[in-house]
Write a protein that binds this DNA or RNA. Sequence first.
DNA 1: CCTAATTACTTCAAGCCTAAAATATTTATC
DNA 2: GATAAATATTTTAGGCTTGAAGTAATTAGG
Lengths: 153, 153
Amino acid sequence: MSNVAKDRVRLWLRLLKVVRGLEQELRDTLRREHNTTLPRFDVMSALSRHPEGLKMSQLSGVLRVSNGNVTGIADRLSEEGLVERIPVPGDRRAMMLRLTPAGTAQFARQAQAHEDWINEKLRGISSEEARAMAARLQAFAAQTEEKEKANAQ
Amino acid sequence: MSNVAKDRVRLWLRLLKVVRGLEQELRDTLRREHNTTLPRFDVMSALSRHPEGLKMSQLSGVLRVSNGNVTGIADRLSEEGLVERIPVPGDRRAMMLRLTPAGTAQFARQAQAHEDWINEKLRGISSEEARAMAARLQAFAAQTEEKEKANAQ
DNA sequence: CCTAATTACTTCAAGCCTAAAATATTTATC
DNA sequence: GATAAATATTTTAGGCTTGAAGTAATTAGG
């Protein structure tokens, strides 16, 4: 294997390790301190950015998960009164999912705690470092997307 | 929220997006082209680094997953003849898990394909960039571990 | 020795996740 | 208008994951 290939593999393994580690801690924190899960948090986060609600298929699109997955999470959040399904006028197949007032309030608290948690976890990283690394990741993602578009044609 | 806090949150969201995206593609590739899954690959990878085998508890330790989780994955790999449970002499509670010759051969093929895949995915990243980013991640991880040790005391 | 605590592992219940099949509805074509 | 294709969602089967409970074996303290 070439040297650059080795360096890339090493980078990937480290990325995976760091992100998985943080994600695991985040799941623990959500469970212990907020009695929820990361997938539930992700759904509520997406809905909070669309106060008018999202169709089930839009939601699975932005979260990049399967339709059936969203159905289950929506069911459970719905049982707890945090989200509600609203029929879409003019299309009886579709359902709009949106946060209830209770869901909105709960998410606001969780989101603030989440930001504080991240800020604490990444305390050792300066603004400049954070921006530099984010820019690199952004460049990488943009480049990957371009490649996908090219392949799709 | 302070500016540095915003930059850190932004970095975290991008890290999560990039790593999740790559991980999802990796899962798809493993499923489509190798008829396996990432957890199975992880188990076989850990075992390949310990040809003499690992106790179930050691395995769940290095993979940072629960004991019950490893039991299930080992069961399925075992049914396919890729790993085997060997009793530990002198301790009838414990079991050593190790790759069978078939498992070793299969993993060798998958590991090579995996490295090629990563190298291709990260093609836009130079040796220098990869090393620089890996070093930063390493520094971050080391610092986090130190903090944990300090907290444990 | 004997009993209590610990250790190693498995089982269980519940949630997450996917691809594929099923259901219901809408849109397009003839 | 009838029917075929497409769309939106749910259901299903199977694997992954956890924490907690259960089982069996070992170790430690008396």
